[in-house]
């Protein structure tokens, strides 16, 4: 009995690497199709589980999308701070020109725009709807204004504040307004919002894992006999695991696609109202949807969650099923 059983050759079947690979490939395809077939056999139950996945991921995806759009609004309006310098009423043209030359020579300043009282009045009349009220005025009440765009290097609030004070020190200047607080606040709110959404996404993702894990657990229970037989005739753990992982994979695919659909329907239904709102601000802002890349990312997230949920359930419950 010292002979190697494999060396006996003829009667003993031998399987080459190529055949193994082919069979492995074959079993993957068969498992994927079989798992999908089983899901298709119970469409309502499958749809409900997939909807749980879809809703759980559509929610944070929608919130992230909303945050992204709000950020775009912020960028459109004013991403770099501007300093508005109101000069004293009745300032002499020559004095103003001199002051403009001084400012233009400063390295801290990137761009300088002069709005004369006449220009200001004109644009006010054309835009604000106060044209009749304005024509009733005898004198132009608007001061000459300079709009200063600081150099890109001047991003720190302290630097900007120093520049503001230097400009305010000039005798011509009535008031200086540094219009950047709201940008800073918006950015802070966005950061906070993103963190909240991430936390929410984490919790909802955990929920998805539990739902898929539980669904797979029930599936394992209902196929207990099959698992025992497969183990008795020499099936590896990987062979037993495969169809269940594919079930998780398909829940991910279906849930992901449904999730994309939910988000897209939401964006499409909000698109009209947002355009109308933007129009009242003389803006052509358009709501951005997920796009192709976003959809792919969402589906991949769902698949990853589906696979992970299935993996956890299989790891937890398969070892408990052994032939007796």
């Amino acid at each position: 009995m010292n002979r190697d059983p494999v060396a006996r050759g003829a009667r003993h079947s031998r399987i080459g690497f190529a055949d193994h690979w082919q069979a492995w490939h074959q079993h993957h395809r068969a498992s994927a199709l079989d798992s999908f077939g089983r899901l298709a056999d119970t469409p309502l139950q499958t749809l409900m589980t997939a909807l749980v996945v879809a809703i759980a991921l559509a929610l944070p995806a929608t919130l992230l999308l909303a945050l992204g759009n709000v950020q775009r609004v912020g960028e459109r309006w004013d991403s770099s701070p501007k300093i508005t310098v109101f000069l004293k009423l009745g300032s002499q043209e020559t004095a103003i020109n001199g002051f403009r030359d001084t400012l233009q020579g400063m390295p801290e300043i990137e761009e300088l725009e002069y709005i004369s009282p006449e220009q200001a009045l004109q644009s006010f009349q054309s835009q604000s709807g106060f044209s009749e009220a304005l024509t009733a005025l005898e004198n132009n009440p608007l001061p000459p204004t300079l709009v200063v765009t600081p150099a890109p290097a001047m991003s720190a609030p302290a630097q900007l504040d120093a520049l503001r004070q230097r400009i305010a020190g000039d005798a011509l200047v009535d008031d200086v307004s540094l219009d950047m607080d709201w940008v800073r606040r918006l950015n802070a709110i966005m950061t906070l919002g993103k963190q909240l959404v991430m936390g929410l996404a984490g919790l909802l993702g955990l929920g998805v894992l539990l739902v898929i894990g539980n669904t797979i657990r029930l599936e394992i229970e209902s196929r207990r006999e099959e698992i025992v037989v497969i183990k008795l005739v020499g099936g590896t753990d990987g062979f037993v695991r495969r169809p269940f992982l594919y079930t998780g994979f398909w829940y991910g695919v279906i849930g992901g696609l449904l999730s994309c659909l939910l988000v897209s329907v939401g964006v499409a239904s909000l698109g009209g109202p947002v355009r109308t709102l933007a129009a009242t601000y003389q803006d052509t802002f358009v709501l951005h949807g997920l796009g192709f890349v976003g959809c792919v990312a969402l589906v991949i997230c769902c698949i990853a969650l589906g696979l992970l949920g299935a993996w956890l359930a299989v790891g937890r419950h398969l070892s408990a099923i052994e032939p007796r």
Binding site: A23, Q26, H27, V233, G234
Partner: peptide
Amino acid sequence: ALPLQIAGVHQRE
């Protein structure tokens, strides 16, 4: 066919 599929036998076999 189950034991053959598990053992990785070629489909035509």
